[in-house]
């Protein structure tokens, strides 16, 4: 019963929180660039407008993949916030991204092809760090259950600093932020047109936007998990991480895909895997 209740709260609140965060992002970005910026709820206005627009398609089936993408993203967050198995959460997330890539391929335009290929590369880039995070949580707490991990008496970031660092590094990919906004970007309105979302319009584009809100909330939930011992510290840390991502987004140029892939793997293996080896050695000696 509580699971169902939690799932319902998540389902209704996550898009609101996501939209609010997206609005804060745009406002903050404008201020960093010396502009006034749009109203705080601009992302909501954008989505409402998209719902009223005509839905042009190259192939009708491209929109179905986006529907699956949205459902799976909601499912991912639902599993996470109701405290289910961490591995299942990660697999659902990967499946969601794969449906997004398929939608990009299905639209058969050169721009969305490049976007889809880049999205695939990004999945390859962030997947090791995400998996290592799950393994790290297991090694530190002895469980994959998200609810149990959240209730650990230890501050997990102190046990898993390397894992946290590697997760922080790939956060920009998941949030579609510079320097890793290769497949589609919030700002690059003229580069490779709009990457993987080029061929989507109207309601379907609105769905992608809403899925992105859910995704942002889920990813920040993962960040919170590292600080779950204290709610206050957890919330402050999550907000600070979000601001850091926005700051980095404005301060750095986009990198090439080779660097995005290589660097995120190197960070994941040095800090993430290093952290796990360290925990392993610690576990043996004690």
């Amino acid at each position: 019963m509580t699971t169902l209740f939690l799932a319902l709260i998540y389902f209704l609140a996550a898009p609101l929180v996501g939209a609010f965060l997206a609005g804060v992002d745009r406002k903050l970005t404008s201020r960093l660039q010396g502009r006034v910026g749009p109203p705080l709820w601009q992302p909501v206005f954008d989505v409402m407008k998209l719902l009223e627009k005509e839905n042009l398609v190259v192939r009708r089936s491209q929109n179905f993949y986006i529907v699956y993408y949205l459902i799976l993203v909601i499912f991912t967050g639902g599993l996470f916030f109701t405290g289910k198995d961490m591995l299942l959460v990660i697999f659902a997330l990967t499946l969601a991204s794969i449906f997004f890539v398929l939608a990009g391929y299905k639209a058969s335009s050169p721009y969305s092809f490049i976007g889809a290929q880049r999205e695939l590369l990004q999945i390859v880039a962030y997947e090791p760090a995400v998996l290592l995070a799950a393994i790290g949580f297991y090694m530190a707490t002895g469980t994959f259950n998200v609810a149990a991990i959240a209730q650990t008496p230890r501050m997990l970031v102190l046990v898993l600093p390397g894992i946290f660092l590697s997760f922080l590094y790939i956060l920009a990919i998941k949030m579609r932020k510079s320097p890793f906004d290769l497949s589609t970007s919030h700002h690059a309105h003229q580069e490779l047109v709009k990457g993987i979302t080029t061929e989507f319009s109207g309601q379907t584009l609105a769905m992608i936007e809403i899925a992105h809100w859910y995704e942002t909330v889920f990813v920040l939930g993962m960040v919170y998990l590292f600080f779950a011992k204290s709610i206050a510290i957890g919330l402050i840390a999550t907000v600070m991480v979000y601001f850091l991502i926005i700051f980095v987004d404005n301060a750095f140029a986009r990198v090439k895909w080779e660097l995005a892939l290589a660097s995120s793997w190197i960070v994941a293996f040095i800090f993430g895997a290093g952290n796990i080896v360290w925990l392993f050695v610690l576990g043996r000696s004690s």
Partner: peptide, 20 residues
Amino acid sequence: PVFDVERLGIINTGNPKHAD
């Protein structure tokens, strides 16, 4: 920054399928 049309919600997209 001088005129900043984004304060009116205006975005310059490079994509006709996203444009109004």
